[in-house]
Design a protein around this nucleic acid. Structure first.
Lengths: 237, 237
DNA sequence: AGGGTTTTCGCCTGCCGGGCATAAACTAGG
DNA sequence: CCTAGTTTATGCCCGGCAGGCGAAAACCCT
């Protein structure tokens, strides 16, 4: 990540042309549904179409640094719960400029309400408008990846608020998976792996009554995978 | 992957400099141990050091295409069981040439013996020589990733020969994990998920005798993840 | 005080990973 | 042919975990 790369044998004048590095992100958050951040283009190409937020990488800048800069400068997103590289691909669609596109997945915690500029909006992942540059495929892959991560890691820490009830956490899972998830089992599974712990606090009951819910929080705010290693575990355990 | 990327708002003369896209691969295979392919550099920089095989990307070429081309042209590797992108990073260590380095993980099936040029060699992952450009870190991350994939997918199809006994398959796992794996349980787990099936054939016993082992093969030769979805499964199942 | 609502706790069940003992199948040597 | 040794396959059993269900707890409103 912070290491040097190999230099070519004979860079010189080089028969190879150069590319402009570009980053862009599938930014996901959960409200009552799963939403992604789209940016309405006001200039050609693809004028008046939607696309993923992103932009050029400056020399001397790390790719992740460039991604965070664009999220902060262009769409006002500073509170990123988790940022992860998806894939890179070469895009030579424009004859004058060869682009090398590195895409990211960014997860925004609930409760962080970035002040969006007027040309960016949240859109439900299930009802996307027409998006340019084949970005719809990237959003689909990001959604699929998120589903996987939620089922074998504590990735939900990056989508949930800092403290939450089991019901609220289950709502996050339901928005991503698209079907009902039991708050009871969710708490048991995550708790057994030591990823989730009660804070001791309680919420006041809603206007309809009901027992006050206990407040929980994730024990770690970085990604921890717990499940897959169970398949063939080391002998000492 | 094959889609277009966003074009900048104002490419023009552009205050942004351009980078040379480079690909390189952590090529892994299993003999009696886990090995990776290294390339001895004969020219500066890092002369007489080892590094990962790879090279420049041509314009109009996909990243994966460039990776396969370099594996075939430079190190004679054409039989790649699985090829997957790891991560990309910007490397501006050289003042005259800004590199954008995309690294891959390549798995070579047992039995495929590429004809290596004299400047490339297999090295045990546990006893690496001095490698340049921080590539040692990339090899470590690739190894870690492979461990994860073996435990929740059929990724071993890309390391094992087309047909094999359970003992031989367990040897592959042991070389990657570093500890003993039971052939019996391995066959049961992979068989239950429908990833592994007996071919009906049998091997002749070795010179020391023993019951002839049944021959197995993977049912699919592309990556299938079976385990993680068990955590919170869809309601209809 | 009582009915309605939401959360929490406890019990039960079925499945799966995984260890172990036993049976099966073969080689080599006498 | 028979036996000892070696390797693989099969069946059984145990513990743990996901997950469903019902009962109890705790609260609101009337």
């Amino acid at each position: 990540m912070d290491e040097a790369a190999p230099l070519p044998d004979a860079p010189g004048p080089s028969p190879y042309r150069l590319a402009a590095p570009v980053v862009n992100a599938v930014v996901l958050r959960v409200t009552h549904r799963l939403e992604t951040l789209l940016w309405r283009r006001s200039r050609p190409p693809a004028e008046d179409c939607w696309s993923l937020p992103g932009g050029f990488v400056r020399q001397g800048e790390s790719l992740e640094g460039a991604m965070r800069r664009h999220l902060a400068e262009k769409v006002g997103v500073t509170d990123v719960g988790h940022l992860e590289q998806l894939d890179s691909h070469s895009a030579d669609t424009h004859p004058e400029l060869w682009l090398l596109d590195v895409s990211y997945l960014a997860l925004i915690p609930r409760g962080a309400e970035p002040r969006l500029p007027p040309d960016t909006e949240w859109h439900a992942v299930e009802e996307l408008p027409t998006v340019a540059f084949g970005h719809a495929g990237a959003i689909g892959r990001a959604h699929e990846r998120l589903r996987g991560k939620l089922s074998y890691s504590n990735a939900a820490f990056a989508l949930a608020p800092p403290r939450f009830t089991l019901r609220e956490l289950a709502d996050v899972y339901e928005a991503v998976f698209g079907y009902a998830v039991s708050p009871t089992n969710l708490g048991r599974v995550l708790g057994r792996d030591g990823l989730l712990a009660p804070t001791g606090g309680h919420r006041r009951a809603g206007s309809a009554g009901g027992r006050p819910a206990a407040e929980f929080a994730f024990t770690r705010r970085e990604l921890v995978v717990s499940r897959p290693l169970a398949a063939f575990k080391p002998p000492d355990t």
